[in-house]
Design a protein around this nucleic acid. Structure first.
Lengths: 276, 276
DNA sequence: GGCAATATCAAACACCTGTTTGATTGCGAG
DNA sequence: CTCGCAATCAAACAGGTGTTTGATATTGCC
């Protein structure tokens, strides 16, 4: 680990006799087609680099970074074992590239302004929840995207900070705005942020613990209306919660309006901010 | 993986010339002291097997099954490399034994009836949430327990089914009872179960995504009142949600009482962007 | 003491890992 | 054609892995 980390931080300082071009890729394959491949494509029309990236995503998501083997990835991509070290620097760089690939995919297929729907605050929250669920449980699109991100959430590696800033934070800010409107509180308020986390938590939990829930709940199979049922429930639960909290805040109950304040938490809380 | 799986299913069929006693351990160390060790304890008073188990838990939680190395575990336990294969069958059996160790620990230190507090349904739900949070964020007690379980939730291995049955299911049933009381619905009702999942989801999410939340929310540090704040919020959010849902159900709104039923519940378009 | 069982140990084993090497192919340019 | 370049390939390399081995203490029992 230390070695690879150092390699990344030092950038590409290595010099080799032959080829080995692992360019930044995120930018390159974005404006793809710029550099002309001088060789024909022996294996279908998709270039090896992209095949590697896709295969790597699948394997990394399925097995995790360490369990995934370069041999497996190359085999799935129909490429030689040396392909990873040629097109990317090493296994870890391929891993990072995979995340950039996902993030780039999201920017293309899931533009942020999709969240910015119109309507009442309630409708906007439902819309947000639906889009989030659709993306999480989106069949037909590479399923390893979410799994890969999930792994990174649970035990973060180097790439996590980038993900939070690029991928999560903007969505979270949209959500806090919507939740804030539903609460009648500013988006930055502690109560607003925690309520937003509660909304996300429900959705994410249903995705994380699918395997557990499947074995736990009786009539809770992933049928055709599964996603819609999920959206309906989370929306129902969350909107009713926000309604109640809004009323509590308006009535000025307890510190921050929370009537269920822990008796043990009587001393100065970290926030101190109260609504309105 | 196939090989090890087969080993486990076939039980301990191997025959060796010398020692190698990897007994079931869960039962053995439960009624510990029954079999008398014929040797002194060269390395402190704690027997090697227990030291191995504790070290294994830490390492497995920290690195995951594959990343964890037997050498590392043995080093932390102050034992020889062969100790794992002697006391347990192999690395995978040690992994399974670690989970039994956790489950046994929970049974001893966290009896289930702690959840069965008295009081109003509201108070009981708050109590449940508090106990759950306390266990999740319990400092001072081996922190790797939760991390190990979390890993298993995300990508399940063979031990997961046992965990669900022994560890999760009983707690979940207690929760559905409490939630059912708050809703005025039976514990087995779909709405009840999904609401229970929503409660759990909030708590678990705050634990899973600590690293994300830390980088996302302004005044959301893990201070001294962190757990109490968390309990307060989840209780607040959940109880207000249950209040609202109970009223909706009583008023007989929409199917299952959910007024936020998806209108698009028929088709399964994955994107669409805007909601209604 | 003699004996068997328990437990520990250093060393080796067989295997798999990521990575590198050097040759080879296909192509465009001079 | 010839050269250089990008891309691919089979083969090997160096290191780490889980596991096994055979020896060696240490104990309890006869």
């Amino acid at each position: 680990m230390d070695k690879s980390t150092q390699q990344i931080e030092n950038g590409m300082q290595q010099v080799q006799g032959v080829g080995s071009v692992h360019t930044d890729l995120a930018t390159e394959s974005a404006h793809a087609g710029e550099l002309k491949p001088r060789t024909s494509r022996p294996r279908g029309q998709i270039p090896t680099k992209e095949r590697l990236l896709e295969a790597a995503g699948e394997v990394f998501a399925e097995k995790g970074f360490r369990d995934a083997t370069v041999r497996d990835i190359c085999a799935r991509a129909g490429a030689n074992i040396a392909a990873v070290n040629y097109h990317f620097r090493d296994k870890e760089s391929l891993y990072a590239a995979t995340f950039e690939h996902v993030q780039q995919f999201e920017q293309e297929h899931y533009p942020l302004d999709a969240f910015e729907s119109s309507g009442t605050p309630q409708e906007r929250l439902v819309a947000f929840i639906r889009i989030m669920c659709l993306r999480l449980f989106d069949r037909g699109r590479p399923s390893w995207h979410i799994k890969l991100m999930t792994r990174e959430m649970i035990d973060p590696t180097l790439v996590m900070d980038a993900i939070v800033v690029k991928s999560i934070k903007p969505k979270f800010e949209i959500l806090t705005n919507i939740v804030g409107e539903n609460l009648g509180l500013p988006a930055r308020h502690d109560v607003t942020e925690m309520c937003a986390a509660s909304v996300i938590g429900q959705v994410v939990h249903y995705h994380h613990c699918r395997e557990v829930t499947k074995r736990l709940c009786s009539g809770w199979q992933e049928g055709t209306t599964f996603i819609d049922d999920l959206v309906s429930h989370v929306a129902w639960f969350s909107l009713r919660a926000l309604d109640g909290i809004r009323a509590d805040v308006a009535a000025g109950r307890a510190p921050s309006g929370n009537p269920f304040m822990c008796p043990a938490a009587s001393k100065g809380a970290h926030d101190g901010g109260r609504g309105g």
